[in-house]
Design a protein around this nucleic acid. Structure first.
Lengths: 146, 146
DNA sequence: CTCCCTGCAAACTATTTGCACCGTC
DNA sequence: GACGGTGCAAATAGTTTGCAGGGAG
């Protein structure tokens, strides 16, 4: 069973457990999120869902995205300048590396992250619950193209 | 000479060097930014400027914030859910710790940051130019209040 | 057969823009 | 005096909401 399918079942399960109905549009949105290797925007989810459901509205995408966020099945990456981007495969906080040219987003491994959170707790006394770590730069592809 | 005053002169200098005119409203905005110990929103800059210039408009605040951003005299912290917040005292990228209860924002020192950026460059091949690091949690004051 | 969900349009909020008048240089 | 800045109002973009009809459970 491929990974996207596992992820989709997990999301369907979360919906069922919380008494949300399983509609065809909802399934189509889950499919886009589970199969997307990038970090789609609402607009791009919308475009993809419309190929199968031409009457779908943006509002439906927004409403479903909100539901999935509530169920912690979707991570929202809010960029103040751009529109939001979503990650349906790793719905928990993790760092991102964003290419400022082509807008590609990667998930790097940062080994020092746990240490850093501890250092912060010690230093500030805050009880840290979430984080948002984005690094911006130019990806290898775009560097080569210049 | 107190710190806010130094900071203000620096900002005025940057404006002059770039042929921007020094208007009373502009000075009032700089004053708010230089004296603010927190990380004010556009709205809160507006409220403070209005006490001295009651006819000031929000558009003027936005236009001046944009100018200061261009001159790298102001750091914008964009929160997708909330409105933007600004830092006129440390107008370069640095990490923040945000209290999710009272919205207070601190600037912690993170010693491991430079190492982390290097690790990322090695791992992803990106030429990292900027970052945006926010940690969310509950500050000591709000923890005590609960 | 009950509600929740969808899809349309209208509302909303933060921000930007156009433009006439004002004030810095 | 020239021309950039201000302040008003209108425009814009992303997102949210209200509501009537349709479909999942």
């Amino acid at each position: 069973m491929p990974d996207p399918e596992i992820r989709m079942r997990k999301m369907v399960e979360a919906l069922r457990e919380n008494q949300y109905r399983i509609t065809p549009q909802r399934l189509a949105i889950l499919k886009v999120l589970a199969e997307s290797k990038g970090h789609p925007s609402v607009e791009s989810i919308y475009e993809q869902v419309k190929t199968n459901f031409p009457t779908t509205s943006l509002a439906t995408i927004y409403k479903n995205v909100a539901v999935l966020k509530d169920l912690h099945q979707l991570l929202e990456l809010g960029f103040s300048d751009d529109s939001n981007r979503y990650d349906g495969n790793k719905p928990y906080d993790h760092p991102h590396v964003v290419c400022t040219v082509c807008r590609k987003i990667l998930d790097p491994d940062i080994s020092a992250l746990a240490d850093m959170t501890q250092e912060l707790t010690r230093e500030t006394g805050f009880a840290i619950t979430r984080h948002r770590l984005d690094f911006f730069g130019i990806c290898p592809d775009c560097q080569a193209r210049q």
